[in-house]
């Protein structure tokens, strides 16, 4: 871990077109199993990139590493030009300590498949927790901002409800508001509709559509909703076996996939629907 050679990685990314997120030969292993194999992936500021692929292809791991929920075994991830997984010390990169991670994490927000709202807090309290206790925003201000966000996701009237009183779609919308309340530059959506009943998927995807249309957020999304991915993505990456097998604009990738595995995957998904 400590003697890995990081001399080839810059201490910071500079230049006119620094990507908001940059994976540089990132490798992730669980024991013998290679989950991600020297992944290179750049996401530009304001870009919406969707990750698709069969289960076990490493797509969720990409988001989890970016949220620092998983450590990486090789390579470096940069966010907004600065290293996330590492930090500069004495002119070279070393493993990030918890302080560096905390600082860098403030750029990133995440929504989960199972929402992960805090069940003992109301919708509003869920949204205020981070702004008040992490960002140190005064309570009144945090409340106003959280109410605004809950209004944006159409949950203003449910702000005093606990998650157990809300449907899955409602919970996920609160979770989106909660993540946005931390004012991240990058938003991660990890299969946010997978645990939802079909009839409420639309209320969550509509919120994400609005985000794409009205905000300049950089977004990375893992989803099984191909139609949704096609509609709103700037770019789609097809993962297979821990690598990006194919990527491109949604029209190209869905309309004219080049690789055989992509074709197989897409036709299998189409059949399932």
């Amino acid at each position: 871990m400590t003697d890995e050679d990081l001399s080839g990685f810059p201490l910071a990314l500079e230049g006119p077109d620094v990507p908001m997120v940059s994976f540089r030969t990132v490798t992730k292993r669980y024991g013998e199993l290679v989950v991600l194999d020297a992944l290179n992936l750049d996401v530009a500021e304001g870009e919406m990139v969707t990750v698709i692929g069969p289960s076990g292809s490493g797509k969720t791991t990409v988001l989890r590493m970016l949220m620092t929920l998983e450590t990486i075994n090789g390579g470096v991830i940069y966010v907004d030009g600065k290293p996330l997984t590492h930090m500069p010390r004495n002119g070279r990169l070393v493993r990030a300590d918890s302080r560096h991670l905390r600082q860098m994490r403030s750029n990133i927000g995440m929504c989960f498949q199972h929402f992960n709202l805090f069940p003992h807090m109301t919708a509003l309290e869920n949204c205020m927790e981070g702004p008040v206790h992490v960002l140190g925003i005064p309570k009144a201000e945090a409340r106003a901002r959280s109410e605004e966000l809950l209004d944006m996701v159409g949950m203003a009237d449910k702000r005093d409800q606990h998650p157990s009183r809300l449907s899955g779609g409602q919970q996920q919308r609160v979770a989106i508001a909660r993540a946005l309340a931390m004012r991240p530059k990058v938003m991660l959506f990890d299969e946010v509709t997978s645990a939802l009943d079909p009839e409420v998927i639309g209320e969550v995807t509509n919120v994400i559509r609005r985000l794409v249309a009205e905000h300049n957020l950089t977004m990375l999304m893992v989803t099984h909703q191909m139609g949704f991915a096609k509609d709103i993505s700037d770019r789609v990456c097809f993962f297979y076996g821990g690598r990006i097998e194919e990527q491109g604009a949604p029209d190209e990738l869905f309309g004219n996939p080049q690789k055989e595995r992509t074709q197989q995957f897409l036709s299998a998904v189409k059949e399932a629907n």
Binding site: R102, R105, F112, H114, N116, F118, G130, A179, M182
Partner: peptide
């Protein structure tokens, strides 16, 4: 559930 820890991490709670 582990997801509670992950949500707390994503909100940068200590």
């Amino acid at each position: 559930p582990k997801g509670q820890w992950e949500a707390a991490t994503s909100l940068n709670l200590s």
